[in-house]
Amino acid sequence: MKIIAVFKWSRNPQDGRVGMNGTLDWRGVKMAPNDDDPAVMEVANAIVEDGEIIGLTIGDGDIAWAAARGAARTMVVTDAQTETDSSVTAAVIAAAIKRVEGVDAVIIGDSVWDYGVVSALMGQLGWPAVAGVVSAAKEQGRLRVTRKMGTASQVLEVEGPVVLAAAANREEKNAPGMKEVLFARKKPVERLTMADLGLAPAGDVSSKGTRFPDTPPARMIDGKDPVAACKELMAALRSDGVL
């Protein structure tokens, strides 16, 4: 199979610096692979057979990340970033995907960091798409994917080309070592710009800034005197009507 593995298309929301007045400062923060990106590579490696995995990423950060986990080469749209409008970010990724001929599967991390991009990409490619994918296998030439549905899991058979959003269950287990990382850096990289894709940084959507939500902060209870603390808590829970 010819697979495009989309990785590191966003910044880690934990890395944004929150100011006293509710501002958000991203200066100096690079894009990072999200929690689910390792699952992308796991699913890709499980179904690639004698095909090829092509990494696709945007913006700054570690370009060799997918190459260190099985991608033969990597494409990067260097001047793209995660936009406020996820449809715009997805359009960049979709345009890069469309440059590659004969793609059988696109796999992207089903990231809670930004479900919007995943959803928009699925729509724009218009292929059969499944999110919440925890594993995949080729069986007699057919693609079988297992996805989470609440507490159950569902096995689907999907005919390609397909888009899969892969979801990780836990932290990456076998992260590549130094040797694989160094080797990965020697693999081919195709650097593209928005202009190469015929795209202009677009969007008539504008951010009016960030603010703290209206939710009140937690009521803190000093536990040094546990008896008094529990008494205070019970009284509060009773007035909340949960006891």
Binding site: V205, K208, T210, R211, F212, P213
Partner: peptide
């Protein structure tokens, strides 16, 4: 919700 739920970002969509 942004910055891990710490903030809200208001986005104007025409």
């Amino acid at each position: 919700s942004t910055a891990d739920g710490k903030l809200l970002e208001d986005i104007e969509v025409p």
